[in-house]
């Protein structure tokens, strides 16, 4: 379980985010640049400090402003794959990979990680001579071998060309499936997220945004307002799907409106009457004229 409730103001960013998700699998954090994605995982890793809040991974409290807990980054057991790789330039690839091994925790097996990420031919090389995709694979391996219990990845494919992307994405999926390591994956690329994410949260201006309609299996409908029922606080819409009830609107009857309906909001209630199937939107997220 990954429980996060953090607040941090830095420069123009006012980050205030709270969520609790099952840690297993890949949690994608997406959103436009400047929305606070990187700040959020820096807070998880302990590289930045929340002004207030609480961070719990599994059964371990890493930060809690109320009780003054602030575990140092080196003690958090979190592997961080940076957007810019950050390989140590004065060490060979093999030394980079082994750098985090001193923790003494049961990390992944060296040979297994080398095989998994196809690093065998790179071990004697220096980071300077690696391509962007190779460097990123080494960075992933280094984080894996440090005995991390959770992996944070900050736009690991942002500086990588499309072919390399296609080359690395399968490796990340393999991490999830073979190493069974929970991964928090930051990206603003929808195609990457669609390929690997098990769960998604979206950030906008330092806040969690509602799940985006585009990522949803629902659809947008054009509907006409038939009437209002002030007593129940509902407005009746006529749509190609049938009659919809939504929270009270102010537009007069006869107005055309666009309704975004997510799959999760729809529930058949009159399946018995097959000829006149009615659906009720449970919680329409967005209704726009």
């Amino acid at each position: 379980m990954l429980q996060v409730q953090v607040r941090r103001r830095i420069g123009a960013l006012d980050l205030d985010v709270g969520f609790a998700v099952e840690a297993a699998g890949i949690l994608a954090v997406h959103g436009p640049s400047g929305s606070g994605k990187t700040t959020l995982i820096n807070l998880l890793a302990g590289l930045e400090r929340p002004d207030s809040g609480r961070i719990v991974i599994g059964d371990r409290v890493l930060f809690d402003s109320a009780s003054g807990i602030d575990v140092k980054p080196q003690a958090r057991g979190i592997g961080y794959v940076f957007q810019d790789c950050r390989l140590f330039p004065h060490m060979s690839v093999a030394s980079n990979l082994r750098y985090g091994r001193h923790r003494g925790e049961r990390g992944a097996d060296f040979d297994q990680v080398v095989a998994l990420l196809d690093l065998g031919a790179l071990l004697a090389r220096r980071p300077r001579s690696l391509s962007g995709g190779e460097a990123q694979r080494v960075a992933i391996g280094r984080a894996l071998l440090s005995g991390a219990r959770i992996l944070l990845m900050d736009e690991p494919l942002a500086s990588v060309d499309p072919e390399r992307k296609a080359e690395i994405l399968p490796f990340i999926r393999r991490l999830r499936d073979v190493v069974t390591l929970p991964i928090v994956y930051v990206s603003h690329a929808a195609d990457e997220i669609a390929q690997i994410a098990d769960r998604t949260i979206r950030m906008e201006n330092g806040r969690l945004a509602a799940p985006s309609p585009a990522a949803d299996a629902g659809s947008r409908l054009i509907a006409v307002i038939r009437g209002h029922d002030a007593d129940s606080g509902l407005t009746v819409l006529e749509s190609p799907l049938g009659r919809l009830l939504v929270p009270l609107r102010t537009e007069p009857p006869g107005t055309m409106v666009r309704v975004a309906v997510g799959a999760m909001h729809i529930e058949p209630i009159a399946a018995a009457d097959a000829e006149d199937l009615t659906v009720l939107p449970m919680r329409p997220k967005r209704i726009a004229v």
């Binding site: 590289l47 140092k72 080196q74 940076f82 750098y99 001193h102 984080a143």
Partner: peptide, 18 residues
């Protein structure tokens, strides 16, 4: 010195002296 490399070392389990 690129301080980001030092931050990376910290996430790999090294305290300030190391």
């Amino acid at each position: 010195v690129d301080r980001r490399l030092e931050a990376a070392a910290a996430t790999l389990g090294s305290g300030p002296p190391r």
